[in-house]
Write a protein that binds this DNA or RNA. Sequence first.
RNA 1: GCUGAUGUGGCUUAGCAGGUAAAGCACCACCUUGGUAAGGUGGAGACCACGGGUUCGAGUCCCGUCAUCAGCUCCA
Length: 581
Amino acid sequence: MEELQTIRHSLAHVLAKALKKYYGDVLLTIGPATADGFYYDIDLGQNLTSEDMPKIEAEMKKIINNNEKFEKIVVSKEKALELFKDNPYKTEIISELPDGEEISIYKLGEDFFDLCRGPHVASTGKLSNAGFEFKVINGAYWRGSEKNKMLQRVYFYAFANKAELAEHKKQVQEALKRDHNKLGRELEYFTTVDYIGQGLPIMLPKGAKTIQIMQRFVEDEEAKRGYLLTKTPLISKTELFKISGHLDHYRESMFIWGDEEKGEAFALRPMTCPFQYQVFLNRTRSYKDLPMRLAETSTLFRNEASGECHGLIRLRQFTISEGHIIVTPEQLEDEFRNCVDLAKYSLGCMGLGDDVSFRFSKWDENNKEKYIGSKEEWDRVQDKMREILNDLKIPFVEADGEAAFYGPKLDIQIKNVFGKEDTIITIQIDFQIAERFQMFYTDADGVKKNPYIIHRTSVGCYERTLAYLIEKYAGALPLWLAPEQVRILTINERNKDYAQGVADKFIENGLRITTDFRNETIGYKIREAMSQKLPYLVIIGEEEESNKTISIRGRGFENLSGLKVEDFINRLKEEVKTFKK
RNA sequence: GCUGAUGUGGCUUAGCAGGUAAAGCACCACCUUGGUAAGGUGGAGACCACGGGUUCGAGUCCCGUCAUCAGCUCCA
């Protein structure tokens, strides 16, 4: 794998050299390997487009055919600064290196050199078998900061050989067919309307139904696990968010209206926390009240920057299975464990258990703007959380600067068909907002203490989860989540009454069915049903007047005929139960 | 918010030297249909995202807005 990284990175230099040939004034910045190739960030006076790329790719091939040597040259910092004096990006990197450090520069062929740590292949001839191809050009901020200039990022696919490249491209093509944003619209799970606005999807009946199924599942499961249901307002005077700290740290993402100076301003809620805390605050609390597990199916509003909204994954209004667990310090570990267990159970039921990864999201102690609280408190809580995670034997990665403004998180991450990662479930420890709201419980020793609060979701945001379900199953959702489980079709209208009787049996057993008794050819009706990726079809005909025949079809058109209706119904109920473990 | 691309009937697309919209699927009607992934005929449906501008004339050129997509930044 390391070798592949070397190939990719070496190719980035080849690209840089090719760009330099056609665009002499191009400013090269960095060109690292990626999961499927490499990119190079460049600053160019003009816009590079995909039409410019064939000649660049041809030039890259030429450089490879020339078998040019990568030659490492070590220079002093002063010398390096001199060599790259015309490139502010390179000089910025160099000047940040410690004084006295040897700096490596790689020469490629006779007339091109680049600042780089390496390693590279010995010469470009080693790249002759590599399969690489231009992917796309996008914008990217210098050093990932929106305060900096936006550069052009040229992405390439790159693999050890051409067969692997072809295989990868095929996989990408396949993955794109599962894109929820396309499939979800085609299969009529949701749509959007220009004049309603960004990040505000219309859930069509199928999407609404699947979300209802998930929601009922979560609410029932939470009730079993000792959660208390709450229902709190979607809006509040801004006063509430002043206390919680949202106004200071989250204002840009909030919808606020009214005159804040005169105290008559209101805001749509971006989070449920400060509302749900009022349940705890309703009267004085004893340690005997804890843990207090509060849950709410909660609609939230966040004024996302316009470029952020995406399909059902990033919205301005969404609904999450939000919950807060108010605990004593001694209860923290057990309750955190319970939350992880619920999250894993939910994911397992949806079949997403193997598609997620865990991220321990910590604060960035250098970013005091973004976070509240002292370093001591953060260290203490983060150490505690790490201890719990280690104890749970969860394989997690640590990420700085990904925490909520009030505390660290365990984020359960999932990737979409483009390979982009997002959070599907989050479990957070809040050690600060409770204090701000003066939440206390009286402990056994008679002393008033601040509780810890765990913020958590059990399937996360329903819209987002639906998106991942559509992508995971290419629209053919597991039976228990399918908005329509069985469709009953008739060969002709004469079977209508009998077919309705069959349909009633499914309904009596709590199955979600639709019927299609229209006077259309059966081939037509089957085609329509199949294109909608329905789990099962039941086709009703008759041999003679009194001898009805029933043919059952599953996904992929396999024939399940021979089953009696009653047996089939039992089989479906079993399938639902099995998937939900 | 930033960079780039895109926006033609419900869907997929054609139309681009600027001369007032074309097709398939879907929809509706009629006919047909005793059988397992596209039966036939006919019909309706688009001020070409929206608003300005240039022009005798704009889907086609220019500007702005909105929306959609990819990426960056941000985030559930």
